[in-house]
Each structure stands twice: as structure tokens, then as C-alpha cells.
Write a protein that binds this DNA or RNA. Sequence first.
DNA 1: GAGGCTAGTGTCAGCGACTGACAATTGACA
DNA 2: TGTCAATTGTCAGTCGCTGACACTAGCCTC
Lengths: 220, 220
Amino acid sequence: MTTDQAVAPPSAGLRERKKRRTRAALVRSALELFTRNGYDHTTVDEIAEAVDVSQRTFFRYFANKEEVAFAAQEATDSHFFAALTARPAGEAPLAALRGAALDAWDTIGEAVTELVPPDLYMRMYSVIESTPALLAVHLRRTAELEERLAREIARREGLDIETDPRPRLVVAAFSGVIRVAGRLWSEGEDTSMEALRELTAFHLDHVGAALTGHWSERQE
Amino acid sequence: MTTDQAVAPPSAGLRERKKRRTRAALVRSALELFTRNGYDHTTVDEIAEAVDVSQRTFFRYFANKEEVAFAAQEATDSHFFAALTARPAGEAPLAALRGAALDAWDTIGEAVTELVPPDLYMRMYSVIESTPALLAVHLRRTAELEERLAREIARREGLDIETDPRPRLVVAAFSGVIRVAGRLWSEGEDTSMEALRELTAFHLDHVGAALTGHWSERQE
DNA sequence: GAGGCTAGTGTCAGCGACTGACAATTGACA
DNA sequence: TGTCAATTGTCAGTCGCTGACACTAGCCTC
């Protein structure tokens, strides 16, 4: 088994299909157990047993227990990145990021559904935010995505990311905002996709103002 | 043993002093081993043995292996937070954060030295940034600090953090910038405190411009 | 300053995440 | 059909971490 968790070429050999099925089954069982019993109270043995493979096989598909928890996020991350590369070249950096985020929310459902039911994805998001070990990994993964985004922004603007700090700066500010929105969403009542989309748009529209000057009565 | 890792009341009983010495010795030995051999290649047994206590005792001082790695950061974090609360009330949010960051760099040396030699602190920072498991925890800790900062900003401005997103927004953008600066520093040649201070100031002065409009020749 | 109290430590047993090694199975392909 | 290589299971072992229990050593009282 190599690094072939990418999209599925229609069918390929029996071996390939079997591997994909096993992997998908592991992801689904894992997320179900995580959301039902909690991440910490789920052992790798349980996950493996639910799919009827050995623990050793589990670790041949996933480097560690955390990795299976992020299998679905992985899909949406690359979805968002792709949305950015698809934005018109003329757009300003922050506008492009904003556009990509909103585009992504519109089409993310399909991208996820192939792997797990959407509601499972949603519930898993809450588990991640409320499990310290997973939250930590989530933040690291986000940082890695940010790096890719910054490089893409630099490319769009024809800048050298090693010498010009601005690409990383916008991305850092941008995703700080995204995180705030995501957190409010996962803590709030309305856990629908639409709610998340709206929260994101709303907060992005207020960064500029929030960064300058005083807030009390006067300015802004 | 309770939660008494705070500052040292001059001497207290023998018991107290002994505990503090053990704790400090564990931190120092741990950081030395981490920076010399790497975090992953250092076992808790080795750390405990270096201080001549049992592994079980190590885990009575630190909840886990990660915690000892962040003992020094803990000191600087609260140092920075204190610097923020000391800023004049009239200052605008971003200005106060900027001021606190620069104030903190000026006096952070002393705060750290009591625990470990400064160069060990510096080298440990690099280890954290380059060790995935530690980087993840670092980011989570940072997120927690951000939450405290946001609450303090809200307090200064007399806002309700539950309903007004702006405190979290500035802090998110602000610390995104800090992180970019910190990373460039830990990757760069000049690993001095001054270099970090300068990088921080420089980047903070450029967020505003970076967030608005296009960058190429034209505007800005 | 002897004796009791209790905080702090060591030892031991055990769980769960993870890994290397090796043998058994099973697609793939000539 | 037989060979080759990819997948998998089994086993043994390391490391992080925890509960239980016994022991030691400061501390405090009489």
C-alpha cells in the first residue's frame, strides 16, 4: 500500500477495490465510535474489530489513531484549496480567500458524502473541537494548510514567499477569523452548514474594521 | 502536592523547597535531553533517571511528557498576559497588544532565567517548532492564551465577548502575525532575543497594509 | 523529643498506542 | 497453473501513562 488515498479511478483491480473498501470501513467505524463513545474511550482494537481486521492492519492504513479521525477533514481541506486556485486571477488576496471559503461551503457536501454521511462529519467536528488531543492536531493541520494557502497567494501575486511576509500575514489573519467563526458555530445552537457559511461571511466582513482604531462609541 | 508551580515564596518549609528543587531539576534535565537527543528519542525513564527519581514521580509533577516541555513557555505566556493588563487603558486594542508584545520581549529574559538558562529556552523553541507532536500542543496552548487575551481586550473596551466578535478577531489576526514572526525567527540565522523583537515589530506594522487591496506595483 | 499524621515517593501490575519481524494468505500476471 | 509480490495476521516488545499499596520522611502536637 502506497500513498493512494486520492480519488478513485473508476474500479482498478480487485486488490485496489478491496483496499479502498477496508479503508472506508475503518474511517466510518472509527468516526461512529468516536462520536458515540468519545475519542479517548475508543481503542484502536475496537475500531479494528468492528471492521474485522487486526490492529496491525489498522496501523498499516493509518499512521496513528489521530489520522483516521481527520480522514474526512482531509477531503474538505483539499476542497478548499482547490477552490482558491479556481478564483479569478485579478482578485485581491483577501477577496480571493473569502471567495474560496464561500465557494467551498457551497459544494463541500458532495465531497464529503462519498466518504461519510454529512451528519457524521458534523458531529466529528464537535468531537475534534472538544477533545484536547484532537484539537491540537487540528490546529497543526490548519497551520500546514495555511502554509499552502500562503504559497498559492504568493504565486498569484508573483511574490517570493521567502522574502515577502505579506502572503503569510493575510492568510494568518484570514484563518484566525475562520477559526473564530468555526468555533462559535460548533458551540452554537444551529449546527447546519448554512449557519457556518453565514457566520464565516459575517466575520470576514468585520476583520478590517476590527483591526483599526478604537471601538467604543466613537470611530468605526 | 497541589497546584503550586507559581512564584516562590522566599523559602517555606523543607518539604516545599525540596519539591521545587525536584521540579526544576526535572525541567532542566528534560529540556537538556530534548534539545540534545530530540523529543521523540528521549524517554520519560531517562529524564527521571537523570534526576534520580522514579518514573512514577515524574508523572506526579507533570501530567504527561509534553507538559515538561512547555514549562518554560508557561512562564513567558503569563508574562505576556501580565504585560497586556499593564498597558494604559486608553490604548486601542491592536496598539495595546503590540505594546504588550514589545514590553514583554524587553523583560522576558529575567522571567525565564529563574527556571532555565536562556539559550536552552531558545533551543527548546526550535525543538517545539520542528517536532510535530509538540507543535500541535504549542498551537493549542496558544489558542488558549488567545482566549484569555480576547477576554482581557473585551474587558478593557467594556464589551461582552459572547456577543461581540471583535475582541476575538483582533486577537486572532494579531497572534497569526506573531506566529509568522516567530516561525521566521526560529528558521532564520539570528536566534537572538533582539532579532525576535524586531521581527515582531516589523510584521505587526505591516498587517494593516497587507490586509487591504492588491499588492502588485499599483496600490499600497 | 517521642509519637502520630500525612504528603511524597517507590514498586508493581496493567492498559493502550505503536512497531519490527516473520509467516501465511491471496490477488496479479505470465 | 505456477510464480511473484502485495496484504494481512500473529507475536513479542517498547513507551507513555495510571491505580493500588506499602514505605519513608517532614511536620506538628503534647
